[in-house]
């Protein structure tokens, strides 16, 4: 890399990748997305709020509380919530409990692959403040230092009812146009990246996983 590109703010350095691999990955810096005109955006936000597709990635033990939510007893489908097997298509990422350093790396990769607008729910005490893993050598304490979080659902573990309440809050935020976590992430990308790289020692992926 030449000196100019190093200081070019629109290009990411991808330092973690070996030299010969850098060509395979996109090094463009993501850009913030602007909302549309007021009433159109309001209408679209209403649609977004009523069609929430979860990323079906059980990141921690809290994912067991998502199962009863999907089945007949709590039936999240009636609220317009459906699981989606790929980050590309989903709009809500649930951090289901504690995030070990290894999982955090996957969380970041998956989060960055989701398309905007995207929302994050931190489920249980562990992603909020560490919970019972507060002094563990291998788990992170606050997930919102690594990706932006829209809704926190406290508890160890929260019952499906609380998760439904959390979804209701998320819907309210989306309708009000306040769930702009993706833009916040891109705006403060350097801060988030510094935090992420501080804990993930084997950073062998591009700086932004397009």
């Amino acid at each position: 890399m030449t000196k100019e590109t190093k200081h070019n703010p629109s290009i990411l350095e991808n330092n973690g990748l070996p030299e010969f691999e850098r060509d395979y990955f996109c090094d463009a810096r993501p850009e913030q997305s602007r909302p549309l005109a007021k009433y159109i955006e309001k209408f679209l936000n209403w649609a977004r709020a009523n069609s929430l597709w979860l990323l079906g990635f059980g990141t921690g033990c809290g994912a067991v509380e998502l199962r009863p939510l999907m089945t007949a007893r709590y039936d999240m489908y009636r609220y317009g919530i459906a699981p989606r097997p790929t980050p590309r298509q989903s709009s809500v990422f649930i951090i289901g409990g504690y995030a070990s350093v290894k999982t955090t790396k996957r969380i970041i990769r998956s989060y960055e692959q989701m398309q905007q607008p995207k929302f994050v729910i931190a489920l249980g005490s562990c992603p909020i403040n560490g919970g019972m893993y507060w002094d563990s050598y291998n788990t992170i304490n606050r997930i919102d230092h690594y990706i932006p979080v829209d809704v926190y659902i406290a508890g160890c573990m929260p019952r499906p009812e609380s998760i439904i309440a959390g979804f209701d809050l998320l819907k309210k935020l989306i309708k009000e146009g306040q769930a702009e976590g993706a833009n916040k992430y891109i705006e403060n990308l350097d801060w988030y990246k510094a935090n992420q790289k501080k804990i993930i020692k084997d950073w062998n992926m591009p700086d932004y996983n397009w």
Partner: peptide, 29 residues
């Protein structure tokens, strides 16, 4: 199908919402 599973199921207009939401995504790769 939801009724066959013993669930309430999504509202009938859910496919319209899904399709609108998908088209309304702000970024695409």
């Amino acid at each position: 199908v939801a009724r066959a599973h013993g669930r309430v199921g999504p509202p009938i207009w859910q496919p319209w919402l899904d399709i609108l939401k998908t088209y309304a995504k702000r970024s695409a790769i």
